[in-house]
Design a protein around this nucleic acid. Structure first.
Lengths: 208, 208
DNA sequence: CCCCATAATGAGAGTCTTGTCAAGAATGAG
DNA sequence: CTCATTCTTGACAAGACTCTCATTATGGGG
């Protein structure tokens, strides 16, 4: 209970990460609803009670998973895009990063999709950056779309479904570029150009 | 136990439908995982035990919900499309029907999306017709897409997300046409033509 | 290497959920 | 209207899940 005037950052965080990662594995397999705390603790190689030393409730764990998921890419992507000028390229880079991450780490992909299409908090945070990019592109006349809402539906939809197939191993190495190209075409970018943008090398991810 | 040589079709089916519809309302509100059988029975105005006269397990109920959902539109759509010649129009009609149905009946839409992006059975059945249409369009050279998988991701993605925003009341009456146009553009249809196809009147739904 | 603040343990209390069943109510054919 | 058949009821047993807590283990600063 003593308020932390001293530093003690290590063990606690390691265990929390164990739990978060175990939770993602279990969520990916059994869905988010169907995951008893016991199963998560056991998957992490810890006892039931240990869980509650770190998270007061299951809901709190889910929030931590969300936070972890977001920290892993969302902000990195936003940053890696910051140097670029063309809204079309922003969208392309973001989509490709998500899809590739999902291919490399299927569990991450699976859980992100489940949360992104289910939990309101997450889809809002995922969409936040994307919506901003879309608006900017629309305003500049770069995207020609019927409405903001339709544009958001299209880009988010192809992104999530693309991640889903990527994380289930049904895709080749070009898949990220493919879905990115399709998204750009739906935003009114000329097919040839869309293809070119979708195949540009990805900019490096800047350090924290 | 007597094998049914006699006819007795009425009451049973009525109650089953009550349960299925109650289940959809509860699923829409609390998700599919978080819906106790008790809550469903109560929502239907029935006792707990009655549930188990009709469905041996909760999973069996979910299967019935899926069946009901599919019967409601999927086959109707397939039929209503059968007279048309252009794969682009097939896709457009199917997407618009789904999106409009979701707008008219938000609960139907919400549950269909949840099942469609989560339960494997359903997404497969939803995709089955669509994939066939896509393949045909690709083969005829009507669609120009990087891969079948990318095309399926794009169309299914925009369809599900479109239904989701439609069923949450965030959309105007044109939304169905809008997302249909975006889907066609992502399939390589020229924007002007995509728009025209997306605004053609929907063909009538044929009788059973 | 010692020691104690900090973390882990796991049995179990309390609660919720599923699924059963004997008894009573409704249905509808004759 | 009568009665056999079929449906409904709600209390309850069995078990799963969440969260607690007194006890034991640990790690890392001195």
């Amino acid at each position: 209970m003593a308020v932390g005037t001293l530093e003690r950052p290590k063990k606690r965080e390691r265990t929390q990460l164990q739990l978060i990662e175990a939770a993602m594995r279990v969520f990916a397999e059994k869905g988010i609803g169907g995951a008893p705390v016991q199963a998560i603790a056991h998957e992490a190689g810890l006892a039931n009670g240990t869980f509650y030393n770190h998270f007061a409730t299951k809901h709190e764990l889910i929030a931590a998973v969300v936070g972890h998921l977001m920290d892993t890419v969302s902000d990195q992507i936003a940053a890696s895009v910051r140097g670029l000028d063309d809204p079309a390229e922003w969208v392309s880079v973001a989509l490709r990063r998500f899809a590739e991450k999902a291919r490399e780490d299927p569990i991450w992909g699976n859980v992100t999709v489940r949360l992104g299409s289910g939990v309101t908090d997450v889809s809002e945070r995922i969409t936040a950056n994307m919506t901003r990019d879309l608006d900017e592109g629309i305003e500049r006349g770069r995207f020609k779309v019927p409405t903001r809402q339709a544009a958001a539906d299209a880009v988010l939809g192809v992104g999530l479904m693309g991640m889903l197939s990527a994380s289930s191993g049904r895709t080749g190495p070009e898949h990220a570029s493919h879905i990115s190209a399709m998204a750009l075409r739906s935003l009114g970018i000329d097919p040839t150009e869309a293809n070119e943008i979708a195949h540009r090398p990805l900019p490096p991810i800047p350090e924290e």
